[in-house]
């Protein structure tokens, strides 16, 4: 059996003439060039396509430039440009008076605490400590913190915020 010779027999394969005629007519009548004049169609499509693309590009550009400007205005990065040394000097010049009120003590130990908050105050700052208010329930809330003889950082911060 010679495969090449047998393959050559496939040359006899022919499409059905009716199908060929139908397909040909369909392609040539419904194809790309049928219907509208080519130039008109192409020009119209071109105008629409290019118009849309230009509009889209402009919108994107506006959006990009706008968002960039907004970032510049509202960005926190802007604050980092502030003169640090000047700010430090200004801060040191402030005569801060911090009053600590309602520093809480743990009821469990019942030890009067003298706060160490003076250590966190600035050299020029004077700290006035109001008489300690012992509370019964703080110990329950603070849990383990209640075992410490010194007020917790949280409580000091709370007091500071008040």
């Amino acid at each position: 059996m010679e495969p090449i010779e047998l393959l050559k027999k496939f040359k006899n394969l022919e499409p059905d003439p009716d199908y060929t005629k139908r397909s040909r007519n369909l392609i040539l009548s419904n194809g790309r060039w049928a219907g509208f004049p080519v130039s008109m169609k192409e020009i119209t499509m071109g105008i629409f396509k290019s118009g849309w693309s230009i509009a889209l590009t402009a919108a994107m550009l506006l959006l990009a430039v706008g968002s960039f400007s907004a970032l510049k205005i509202f960005s926190p990065v802007r604050n980092s440009v502030v003169d640090i040394t000047g700010l430090k000097a200004e801060a040191e010049a402030i005569d801060a008076q911090i009053e600590l009120g309602n520093v809480v003590y743990t009821s469990a130990l019942g030890i009067e605490n003298k706060t160490s908050t003076t250590s966190i105050a600035s050299p020029k700052a004077t700290v006035k400590i109001s008489p300690p208010a012992k509370t019964e329930n703080i110990g329950q809330e603070s849990g383990e913190e209640g075992t410490s003889t010194e007020p917790t950082i949280d409580s000091v911060l709370d007091a500071l915020s008040q």
Partner: peptide
Amino acid sequence: RGKASAFGLLYDHYQPKIYRFILI
């Protein structure tokens, strides 16, 4: 350039070959 009759002639010549190729 869009001349349908020219493409028609190309179709007539090559369609049986392409058909055979696909059919096999």
